[in-house]
Amino acid sequence: MEIFQNILNALQFGSFYALIALGYTLVYGVLRLINFAHGDIFMVGAYLAYFVAVTLLGIGGLNLGLHVDPALALAITVPATMILTALVGVTLERTAYRPLRRKGADRLYVVITALMAGLVLENGNLALLGASRKRFPDLIDKVIWNLGGVSVTNLKVVVIVAAIAVFLMLQFIVTRTKIGMAMRGISYDKFAIPLMGIPLDTIIVVTFVLGSAMAGLAGILFAMSYPILEPYMGALIGWKAFIAAVVGGIGDIRGAIVGGFMLGFIEIGVVAVFPSTLRDLFAFSVLLIILWLRPTGIYGVAQTTKI
């Protein structure tokens, strides 16, 4: 029975990685930009969810005298967090990345800006809120179903379902809608797209909105599953999700899902057999070997150069 329990846990962890990896891959797929700040946007998402939730429940520092029912609070927190996190992502795009793009700066400078923006978010949070950890309030009552020895919580099911639903939705947007077609077009040729009458900046903003909103969703779900928040929570999980996205083949939505779940399974698998301190060592080694063998990841397409 332990094996089913592990599979369930792997699916849950994989879902977090997948949700974050989707954000990386969306932005990369459109802009060829590694948005290194994305892991920290996830962290910001978790914190925003915390502030929205405690304000609604009337237990936070910002007490508006609201005492909303936890279930209703959850129903408000989810969309509110997604919108607020999307705003953070768009702000980042507007203030840091867009000016560089306008100047036609080398891709490298944008990547460094992203890396630094991530540090600003992390340490800004630390400086503003202090090192004390925040405890996320319980918004739903934990329900545990015991299915033949496997304990399934309602939260785990929600997380997994959310990841799959988000994947299907994004896959639909990217492959079936006009805006998705424009997104794919930009990744081929950023200069031709505006000439075809497609508003480049709007499409890029939509990309950031989608990616950041998904990070926000991951943030809430993570905070509900592991209710302790700290400023550096986004760093490691973000890097890992990013590597998952690359292993899946960055720029491809299926790759993010496959890479994310794969990382989840590797990690849980390692912990099931070896001491848990070896988790990162094994997980990263496996990923490194995959990249040695398939340098462009599972779904990635090698770029061919013509001479």
């Binding site: 990013f242 690359v246 990162d280 060592l281 990263f284 490194l288 462009t296």
Partner: peptide
């Protein structure tokens, strides 16, 4: 075989691998 972004990830993974190897 590879360069650019993919190589960047490999360096990143190498960094993590070395750190966690020492940790163990």
């Amino acid at each position: 075989k590879t360069r650019g972004d993919y190589l960047a990830i490999i360096t990143l993974a190498a960094n993590y691998i070395i750190i966690s190897a020492i940790n163990n």
